[in-house]
């Protein structure tokens, strides 16, 4: 039986601390699907909030049922998602909200996701958005490029805890942290105002330059290096 987390010492010496701390610092979202780790963070929240504040970061617990660490310009490095990851994250959030996904406990086939993307945006736009570094659209390889870009984005989102792949399949499970992608439209006021508030809060940045996961202070993140 675990000891109660009454002091910061209890929190840090707990067996779950190293794993939770490393994941949070990597930008991973820890949700109720993560079981014990999520339970640990719930119990330790009171002590971990001031702990991470000293590192210039905020430990955020959303009512949707997940935790993440938000850098606040202190010593903790930050990264931003690229346009492909943003697009796929938003579409997955849409699937998460769709009642038809409920029947499969949040499971979505990658092919259906791709079909949806190309159907809604058109194949050329979808291919170019899923492959942000690509300068030219090639019709002959469009289908392959779209899949490749989609999988790259999905894997990246999986690493960050937004979704999970079913082992050895092309099925992804939508997870609660995907609701972060719906933040600008969650308040039923003006989306632009909501976006401005998110920028002020440090949740998002507006960046026209489309570079891969890049430290917001201009340094490349270790993950990409």
């Amino acid at each position: 039986m675990l000891s109660p987390l009454e002091t910061l010492h209890d929190v840090i010496t707990n067996e779950h601390f190293p794993e939770a701390d490393m994941q949070l610092r990597r930008g991973v979202h820890i949700s109720s699907e993560d079981g014990m780790l999520y339970g640990y963070l719930q119990d330790a929240l009171e002590h971990l909030e001031p702990f991470y504040r000293r590192f210039g970061a905020e430990l955020i617990h959303r009512s949707d049922g997940y935790f993440y660490l938000l850098p606040r310009g202190g010593g903790l490095r930050a990264q931003v998602l690229d346009s492909a990851e943003m697009l796929v994250g938003q579409v997955m959030a849409l699937f998460y909200l769709d009642p038809s996904t409920l029947a499969n406990s949040g499971a979505v086939q990658v092919d259906i996701l791709l079909e949806w993307l190309t159907g809604m945006l058109g194949e050329e736009t979808a291919v170019m958005m899923l492959n942000p570094k690509r300068r030219k659209y090639r019709e002959t390889t469009a289908s392959r490029d779209a899949r490749k870009g989609l999988f790259k984005a999905l894997r990246s989102l999986e690493r960050l805890g937004f979704l999970s792949f079913q082992k050895n399949t092309e099925t992804v499970y939508a997870r609660a942290p995907l609701m972060r992608f719906a933040d600008p439209v969650r308040d039923f006021g003006d989306s632009a105002d909501a976006l401005r508030r998110l920028i002020e809060h440090g949740e998002v940045v507006v960046n026209d330059d489309d570079e891969d996961i890049v430290d917001v202070r201009g340094e490349r993140s270790q993950e990409e290096e």
């Binding site: 660490l69 938000l70 490095r77 998602l81 994250g89 960050l160 430290d215």
Partner: peptide, 8 residues
């Protein structure tokens, strides 16, 4: 816009 995440 792009989501901000920790990266250390």
């Amino acid at each position: 816009y792009q989501l901000v995440l920790a990266s250390d």
